[in-house]
Nucleic acid binder design. Structure first.
Lengths: 339, 339
DNA sequence: CTGTTAGCGCTTTCAG
DNA sequence: CTGAAAGCGCTAACAG
């Protein structure tokens, strides 16, 4: 096997008969007064040798890696992947690289990734924060490392945060159910402990909206807990006299759990039960009936996050703020009219 | 705002009253003859100062980044994401980091990512190769950079390759249809040009199996092309006298396109049409009827890829080989018995 | 307009 | 068992 040695800036310099700093300047496009022929010369040498600069070495001197880290709380949420894709798009345009880590809702894992990415000298972070690592986030700030939060508010830490107007999202759902004549409206949400912003806010929004639309918000119509346990809970309620005619699924995972239950029970949707989910799901239109969902503008949110972070990195910081995004209604066929 | 300076190995050395090389040795667990108290001393200093080694600097000297790159052809395939997750799991265990790039089925983009990752000095690559960058792959090999291919065979390049036994997968589907009494069996596949291994092999496998099971393989029952155009093609065939009673979707994206068509036409599944898809899809059980699929053992395949690559990286290369994995049948309810 | 020099933070001989 | 010194590949003053 032919062994091709890795070629460095020195090789290029020799080949082009200039000093390596000249090559470096060429590489960094600092050719204010550089001779045309020097440039051509260098360019040609680079091509002939097939030279590719060593990013690692560059990062070391520049103290800047052109790399950012994303830490998502749980990659299983469709929203996370949508946001990631959007951030990657924005960053690619500016030749910024992205490293994605999935904390899996585990603060220990999250902390591990955080320090690992710091070791890797990333220029900044976009984090879907777990609630339990406040001191680590604070340390990031102390080190002047740019950070943007996504999806979850951490009041203790002063960081720009991007999230859905969750109250509005829940309200939209209740309003829609109400318009279609539903009174017995339930909600299913993943567990509320630890208190994750979107879950808490969506439930609060649900309660407020029920009130607003003059519905009775029964405690037994609020299902929360580990999703696998949901089945049992739902089973119970559907054996009682007054059953819900409509259920709001607080997020995509809750929706899937609910749908599994419905399929198992062979429920006829939407006749027997109307459903709205918060969060887009890939199979919403494919499902029978089409799933009415309330979506987050994930693409814009990701873009905004990237912009805020890159601004900080490039020393144009904006002061920490909460950015709320409007939910978007996608009406399909999973809500029946029972007037 | 309090400005905390980044602390380096020198700070630790001073704090612990040793030289920085001693600290370095401690960090690299080369404490053969290091005094117990020196160790404790260093450990304590590290903790007190909150020191985290600079990975970039370490990589520069070690000429090893403990990072690998994955280039997927198209992240939209569920299979890609499953494999990625599996690779990440394997790598995390060994403290290897992973950078994922989506070439988007675009050879230009692929090449760009390849050189970018080389610049970043990744220790190796796992690639879902597009067919058009043979010379770039070859160059990787010339530079002695470890590579493993996934999903697609590149006969021109001598690299270990992991993929499904696609022939078998198609055969399984035809066999199942045949057992259930279907004769008019069709196949829908994404476009065959450029010739992507799994598509070609699955179609070939389909043809062979049709023959094997004594079915007539009609050319007009082979749908291939851009998925969005599929609708028109299917429309035509379903207006003819002899219609397919069963369709094999050659991959997940083809399945989704097919399902969309069925939903639009309000077809009753599986009574009017039986369906099998190759590749697992997230909503397979949720769908009505449950989707019978033939799955790739993505987890094992990813794990194997990681192992092969890491072996190469750690100088235990295995000679290039093609690894074929057995498809797995997940029988659900989308195939009717028409005996 | 180009070359010399001094690091970036860490690892690695090699003396002591 | 520990420290001094050289160097990874590149950038950034600063002379010239």
């Amino acid at each position: 096997m032919k062994k091709t040695k890795k070629i460095t800036i020195n090789d290029v310099a020799k080949h082009a008969n200039v000093s390596k700093s000249t090559v470096s300047q060429y590489l960094n496009e600092r050719f204010e007064y550089m001779g045309e022929k020097t440039k051509d010369n260098i360019q040609q040498s680079i091509e002939e040798l097939g030279y590719a600069p060593n990013f690692i070495a560059r990062s070391l001197t520049k103290k800047k890696t052109s790399t950012i880290g994303i830490i998502v709380a749980n990659i299983l949420h469709g929203f996370s992947t949508q946001v990631i894709r959007s951030i990657e798009d924005s960053c690619n345009e500016k030749d910024i690289h992205v490293i994605v880590c999935n904390a899996d809702d585990d603060p220990v894992k999250e902390k591990k990734y955080l320090t690992m990415l710091q070791s890797k000298q990333v220029d900044g972070f976009i984090i879907f924060p777990s609630r339990q690592n406040t001191s680590v986030y604070q340390q990031l700030l102390d080190y002047q490392i740019p950070v943007v939060f996504m999806d979850r508010i951490m009041p203790e830490v002063s960081v720009s945060t991007i999230l859905l107007d969750n109250y509005k999202a829940a309200e939209l759902a209740v309003e829609h159910f109400s318009e279609k004549g539903h009174d017995n409206i339930a909600i299913v949400t993943p567990k509320l402990e630890p208190p994750i912003t979107p879950r808490i806010e969506r439930l609060d929004g649900f309660r407020m909206a029920m009130d607003e639309f003059g519905k009775d918000c029964r405690e037994e119509f609020i299902f929360s807990g580990d999703l696998p346990l949901l089945r049992g809970q739902l089973n119970k309620i559907f054996k009682r006299k007054v059953k819900p005619t409509a259920i709001l699924a607080s997020n995509d995972l809750a929706l899937i759990a609910l749908l599994e239950f419905c399929k198992e029970k062979e429920m006829r949707l939407p006749e027997e039960l109307s459903i709205i989910g918060i969060d887009e799901v890939s199979f919403a239109v494919l499902h029978n009936p089409g799933l009415t969902t309330i979506n987050q503008p994930a693409f814009e949110m990701g873009k905004q996050a990237a912009e805020l972070l890159l601004a900080q990195i490039n020393d144009h910081p904006t002061k920490p703020e909460i950015y709320r995004y409007e939910p978007r209604f996608a009406v399909r066929s999973s809500v029946s009219d029972i007037h």
